[in-house]
Design a protein around this nucleic acid. Structure first.
Lengths: 198, 198
DNA sequence: GACGAAACGGAGGCTACCTCCGTAGTCTGC
DNA sequence: GCAGACTACGGAGGTAGCCTCCGTTTCGTC
């Protein structure tokens, strides 16, 4: 039994086609209407019944998670680049948090489900979040080692803070100057205050 | 016409009674289920038809605003006390932000409508928010004058940050230590790093 | 007590969620 | 190619919440 032939049962072509098409439509629809948009409308636009949509993505979170999957790799490419090219660990962490903040605002209303996912083991978005925290931790630890980040900061809370800042941006304050001010507050929140004051 | 007798038309007793009863029920219901709970259920529990509820409170925001009204005065009492009793402007600002953070978590899910209200002139919650910002500004300015708060911080963004922190707490991270860590990050965000280092 | 106005209530239209099951489409083995 | 097995589809339909409209009730006044 241990080496049981699990039966290959290749996936049907129409299934793959539908899934991919639903994702395309959802990508566009969520971009326009935020992640709270009607799933039925997405199904309709994709030319499938609601049943099909729910079979592929049992919950809204599952659909969002699938959409993020694609961008996920881009983000981690960026992680690699930031790590490699940044002049110091301070700069690297800054860059990474910016990238994260951007990612997390890919769709309007995205921060909310991500926040929920962080407290629910089962959510398909949870795994994604965990990876973000792990990546953040790597850069944070380096920055702390070099005296750039306050030693008591933990990566989980840092990620949450980025999420919260992104949440504030959403729809509410298109205002660019507010947005910059909030980033600045967050930055002074984690950064060690210029110890090399001289 | 200028001194037109506007007709007193005393309010009907049943109207006042209903309004007050709806508020009682809503207070309890929102406490249990968050501000997203079903308005129809509230109407049912209050023993009135949905029409009556919507006549008194045309939107969910209006209902929430009416509920906050009561706590509002308590909060500003506290504001007075904090101003009067705090040893210094730093402490006062800290205390006030804590009080605000508490207020803003009176009900589960409250931060979200407040955030929206801040970008919509018309929301009945907007006036409330504006008062918070004004109060914050008074203490912030004092703290900045005394060198306790970074000079570039503005009260609007500070309030938003408190809101965001409260949003993170909601449902997601019952975790007490996370909550404290987030407060700490926010605090180092606005506070001037021990300028009296000597 | 009767009249006019104010307030009530709930039926009903709308939208969105999600499920269930008869039907249609796909793949496999021959 | 074709038959058979099985996978996946679609959409009808049940549920729930939002909000409105209008016939009816209740209140205050004269």
């Amino acid at each position: 039994m241990s080496t049981a032939e699990v039966r290959p049962t290749r996936q049907r072509a129409d299934k793959a086609r539908n899934r991919s098409h639903i994702l395309d439509v959802a990508e566009e629809f969520f971009s326009q209407h935020g992640v709270g948009g009607s799933l039925e409308t997405i199904a309709k636009r994709a030319g499938v019944g609601p049943g099909t949509l729910y079979r592929h993505f049992p919950t809204r979170e599952a659909l969002i998670a699938a959409l993020l999957q694609a961008r996920y790799e881009q983000l981690f490419d960026r992680f690699g680049i930031i790590k490699a090219e940044s002049s110091d660990s301070n700069h690297a962490l800054e860059q990474w948090l910016d990238a994260l903040g951007e990612y997390v605002t890919a769709f309007d209303g995205l921060p909310a489900p991500l926040r929920v996912a962080l407290s629910e083991e089962s959510s398909p978005l949870a795994i994604t979040c965990q990876a973000f925290i792990t990546a953040t931790d790597e850069l944070l630890t380096a920055a702390q080692r070099d005296g750039y980040a306050r030693p008591w900061i933990r990566s989980r809370e840092l990620f949450l803070s980025v999420l919260a800042t992104a949440w504030l941006r959403g729809a509410a304050l298109a205002d660019e100057s507010s947005s910059r001010a909030l980033r600045a507050i967050l930055r002074s929140g984690w950064a060690e205050p210029a110890p090399t004051a001289e």
